[in-house]
Design a protein around this nucleic acid. Structure first.
Lengths: 226, 226
DNA sequence: AGTGAGATTATGTCCGGACAATTGGTGGGC
DNA sequence: GCCCACCAATTGTCCGGACATAATCTCACT
C-alpha cells in the first residue's frame, strides 16, 4: 500500500513516510511487520531511512510490471479461471460482437459494477479487473499468439498497435471500495492496446480518470466517432 | 560468514546450508538473526530457499568489490585513520625507503604479526590488512592520483601495471585467529598491483597461500632476484 | 509397484518486547 | 549570537515465541 501511495503521488519525493510506530497504529500491525514493509521499499531504492530523521521518499515508484510472455487475453482469462481469480467489470457490458471477438463470455463472468468516472473518455468503456486473492510471483502463462492474431483471424482486421502487460498491484482505498473489497487486497491489472485504423476499431486500456496514475482496467471500446 | 563460506568453497553450488535452527545453535543467535542472514543471501541470489527443502546454494559468491574511486594507498591510509580503522601488518616491516615511497609511517602504525605462509612467495613480503569494526557500505575516498603517480613522482619510475581494488570482507576463523580478532569481524582487504620492469620493482598484492581464495593483504616486496 | 493420507520438517509470516545507535531539537551558559 | 551539553525521537539490531504453509518422507493400503 505504501508503494502504491508513492506511485500514485500520495507521497512525493522528499516527503516523509509515517514512522514505524505510526504505521503500527494506523494498520494495527506489529512494528516488525511495519519494518518489513519499509525495508522492502528501502531495498527497492524508493526511500531512504535515517535514524531520528525518518523515512524519506527518494524516488518515484514505478508500478511493477510483468511484461514478458503473457499470451493473449483468452489466456489471461483462462489463467484467471485456473487460478480461481475473480473477474469483474465496471461500466457497460461490451457489445456482444466485440465481446465474442475477444473471447469473452458475457454471461456469468460479468459482474457489472457502477460506472466509474464521468469524463468523456469513459463513455462506452467497459473495464475489466481481475482480482486475485494472492499476487502470483510470476505469471506463468505460456507464450502464445496474441489477441491480435485472434482478432485478425475472426474479423480479418489487423491491429496496428500492440501493447500488452500485466501488473500486480495493491488496491488503494477508493478502488477497493469500488470493487467491494478491502484496501490492500491484491489485484492483477491487465492492459492491452490495439488500434485498427482501417476499421476504426480501437481497443484500449485506459484509466478512468486522468488524475489516476494507475491504469486499473482492461477496456474494450470503439473510437468516439464510431 | 556464510557468504564467505560460500565464496571460499566451504559450501558449493548445490549444497545445503544449515537450517535456521542449526544456525541458531551453532552461533548462539536467535532464529530471527539467522533468518536475516539467510535472507540477505537469498536477496543476493546466492541461495534459494524452499519450505521443507531447506536453503540451497545456487550461485557462487563473488567477493564484494568496491572498484571505483578509491584513490591511492595514502588515501586509503588516511581514510583508515579518519575512520579509526586498525591497520595491521604481518611479515617483516617494509624497507624504509620503500615505505617512505609508499607514504607509510613505519613507526607506530605497524603492529608486526607472525609471518603467515611459508611458500617461497612469502619471502620478504609484508602484508597490510586494515581492520574495520564495521564494514562501510561504500568507500568514500575521493578520487585522486593513484599511488603509481606518487611513485613516479618520487622515484621517477613508471608502473607498468596498475590494478587496485578494495574489498569489504568478513574474517573466517583462521585469519581471524592470525589477526587476533574474532571470526565474523569485518575487514577491508586492499589490493594493488604495480610492476616496474625498468627498476625491477614489484609491488604486488598476493595471497599468502595459493589455496586461499581470498586476497587478504597489501604486499610490498621486490622481485626475488633483487 | 503405485497411490494416497498423514506425519514431519523446513521456511514464511506474524506477534511482542528490549536495548543500542544515531541525529535532530532544545535550552542553558558564555 | 554562538556553542555545547543534554534530551528525545527514530531507526537498527537483537531476543523470544506462535502459528501458517509447503514440500518431503513414511507407511499403510490396494
Amino acid at each position: 500500500m505504501l508503494r502504491a501511495a508513492i506511485t500514485n503521488g500520495t507521497y512525493k519525493v522528499g516527503d516523509l513516510l509515517p514512522t514505524e510506530q505510526e504505521l503500527c497504529a494506523l494498520h494495527d500491525i506489529s512494528r516488525h511487520t511495519a519494518r518489513d514493509a519499509l525495508r522492502l521499499l528501502s531495498e527497492a531504492g524508493l526511500v531512504t531511512r535515517k535514524r531520528r530523521a525518518g523515512t524519506i521518499v527518494t524516488a518515484p515508484a514505478e508500478p511493477a510490471v510483468f511484461v514478458q510472455p503473457l499470451g493473449g487475453f483468452q489466456d489471461l482469462l483462462q489463467y484467471a479461471r485456473d487460478a480461481q481469480l475473480k473477474i469483474m467489470t465496471y461500466g457497460p457490458a461490451p457489445e456482444d460482437g466485440l465481446a465474442q471477438a475477444m473471447g469473452l463470455d458475457t454471461a456469468g463472468w460479468w459482474e457489472l459494477r457502477g460506472q466509474r468516472g464521468t469524463g468523456p473518455k469513459a463513455v462506452g468503456v467497459t473495464r475489466v479487473l481481475i482480482r486475485a486473492d494472492c499476487v502470483p510471483e510470476r505469471a506463468e502463462i505460456q507464450a502464445h499468439p496474441t489477441i491480435a492474431d485472434a482478432i485478425e483471424a475472426r474479423f480479418g482486421i489487423v491491429a496496428t498497435r500492440i501493447d500488452q502487460q500485466i501488473t500486480a498491484m495493491v488496491l488503494d482505498a477508493p478502488l477497493a471500495q469500488l470493487l467491494g473489497t478491502e484496501p490492500g487486497a491484491a489485484a492483477l491489472r491487465t492492459r492491452r492496446l490495439y488500434h485498427d485504423e482501417q476499421n476504426n476499431l480501437f481497443l484500449a486500456s485506459e484509466t478512468a480518470h486522468p488524475a489516476d496514475r494507475f491504469v486499473y482496467s482492461q477496456s474494450f471500446t470503439r473510437e468516439r466517432g464510431d
